[in-house]
Nucleic acid binder design. Structure first.
Lengths: 244, 244
DNA sequence: CGCATTATTGTCAATATGACGATAACTACC
DNA sequence: GGTAGTTATCGTCATATTGACAATAATGCG
C-alpha cells in the first residue's frame, strides 16, 4: 500500500460514538456539551482523539467511559464509518471514525463543573450539533434501523433477559412505528436461532406474566467483533412509500 | 470531540480498495503485486496513503486510477470500514480505510516494469495477501453478498443496460450458488423500484433475444454517496445451514 | 369475585417463494 | 426452408410467510 519515499502525511484521528438506547419507549442518543472551542457550548457526539498505540474501538470505549463516568459499558459496539478528513473541523483536517453503540439504558454521570456534561436526548428532539455530527447521527440511525431488520441486535438494547414486549418496544422506538404484538410475538419466537426461552417469567407487572427470553447462543455477539449473525428470514420494518 | 491542550497524535492514513467484478461467471478481485518492502513481491489490495487535503473517497479513486491506469473508474464505490492503526503494518501504526468497488469488468493496464502490476484474481484463488488484507477482503465479500440481498447494487456489476440473465449471473457469482432462471426473472422484474425496461432487446446471442433493463431511477446511486435504496422485499440468498 | 390489563395462541386471506412445465424467439446447421 | 439446440419468458401449484384480527389465558386490583 505505501510506496513513495517522502514521508506520508499524518492526520489527527478522532473517534466519535453514537450511543443509542431506548427509554420510555423513545430512542435516545447520548450527547455531550462542548466546553471548549470550536463549537463551545454546542452539543456534540461523545468522542475524542485516538492516542498513540491505541486501536479504534479501544479509543471509542475509553472516550465514552471518560465522558459518561461509566467504567464498564453495556451493549454492543461496532464501527459505523469514517468521515473526513477534509472540511469537518475548523481547526484543520481531522479524520474521525464513528462508532455505534446499542445499549440498554444506563445512567450517565451527573456532570461535574469542569467535565463535559453527557445526557440522553430523544432522537426526535436533538438540537443542532457540532461538526458534521448531524450527518453521522443520521447515518447511525439508518444503520440501527436496518440492523434490527437483518440481525438479532435489537436485543442489544435490552438487558440479559427480556420479554417479547420489551423487545417489541425496542423495535417500535427505533423504527418509529407501531407493531402488532401478536404478529411480532409469532415472528420473534418463530425465527430460528434468534431467541431462547429462559423458562422464567416476569412477576409483579400488570397483566399476565410474560416469558423471559435471552439471545440464542448463535446470535450472541462475540466480544468486540461485529456480529455476522443474521436473522433469517429478516424482520422487516413496514415500508409504505417509495423505495428510494 | 477534541479537548486537551497537548497536540493530538497524528497517524499515517491509507486507503485500500477491494475492487470486485464478475468475469466468466466468477467473482474476481483486483490485486497488485508489491514492489517494495514490506511484503515485497506479495499480492495486496490496491491502495496508498491519503495525501494532505484529500478526502477518503478521493484518495481511493486516485490510488485505484494510478494502479490500474484507468482514468475514469466504472461502478459503485462505498466505504467498507477502517482497520487499525495497531499492529497491521510492520513499520508502525497505520490506519487504513477500506473501500469496496462493485464494477463491471474493466481492463487493467498491462504492467510497466516499474509500476505495481494490477490484475484480476478469482476470489476462489486468491493467494496469501500482505498486511491484514485477507481479513479486509473477507469482510468485503460478506458485505458484497449482503448488498445483493438488500440493495439494487447487483446492477453495479453490469453495464448501463443488462439482461436479467446477466444480472442473475452476477448474483450467482457473488453468492456462489445457482439460481432458478424463472424464479429469478419473476423476482427481479417483479420487485417494485428495482428495474426499468428499456424497451430494447439483445441481438446476435444464442437463443431467444432478451429484454434489456436498466436500474430504475429510485435505485440509481447518486454519485459518490452510498445509496440507501432498498430492495423490498429483499432478494435473499439461499441459506442452508445454521444462522451463525 | 369480577374487571382491567397484558401475554399468547389461533384463524384466515393475501403475498411471496421454490420447484417445475410449457412456450416463444432466436441462431446454427443441414 | 426446415429442424435442432439454446435461452428467455410466462404459467401453475404446493408451501411458506405476512398482516389483520378474534379468542383465550393469567395476572393485579378493588
Amino acid at each position: 500500500m505505501p510506496e513513495s519515499h517522502p514521508a506520508p502525511h499524518r492526520f489527527p484521528v478522532t473517534v466519535d460514538v453514537v450511543a443509542l438506547t431506548v427509554r420510555d419507549g423513545e430512542l435516545n442518543v447520548l450527547l455531550i456539551t462542548r466546553l471548549i472551542e470550536p463549537f463551545k457550548g454546542k452539543p456534540a457526539l461523545p468522542g475524542g482523539f485516538v492516542l498513540a498505540g491505541e486501536d479504534l474501538q479501544e479509543a471509542a470505549v475509553r472516550e465514552l467511559a471518560e465522558e459518561t463516568g461509566v467504567e464498564r459499558l453495556p451493549g454492543y459496539l461496532e464501527q459505523l464509518g469514517s468521515y473526513g478528513p477534509k472540511g469537518r473541523d475548523p481547526r484543520g483536517d481531522v479524520l474521525t471514525v464513528a462508532h455505534l453503540l446499542l445499549a440498554p439504558d444506563f445512567p450517565v454521570l451527573a456532570a461535574g463543573s469542569d467535565a463535559e456534561h453527557a445526557a440522553w436526548y430523544p432522537v426526535t428532539e436533538v438540537p443542532e450539533l457540532a461538526f458534521d455530527h448531524a450527518r453521522i447521527l443520521d447515518d447511525a440511525l439508518e444503520r440501527a434501523k436496518s440492523k434490527l431488520e437483518y440481525s438479532p441486535l435489537g436485543a442489544a438494547f435490552c438487558g440479559e433477559e427480556f420479554t417479547i414486549a420489551q423487545l417489541r418496544a425496542v423495535y417500535e422506538a427505533v423504527w418509529g412505528t407501531r407493531l402488532d404484538p401478536r404478529n411480532f410475538h409469532r415472528k420473534a419466537t418463530g425465527t430460528p436461532g434468534f431467541l431462547e426461552d429462559t423458562g422464567r417469567m416476569t412477576t409483579g407487572d400488570a397483566g399476565r406474566p410474560a416469558a423471559l427470553f435471552r439471545l440464542a447462543p448463535e446470535s450472541r455477539p462475540t466480544a468486540g467483533h461485529p456480529t455476522r449473525a443474521v436473522l433469517n428470514p429478516p424482520l422487516m420494518r413496514p415500508r409504505n412509500g417509495a423505495a428510494g
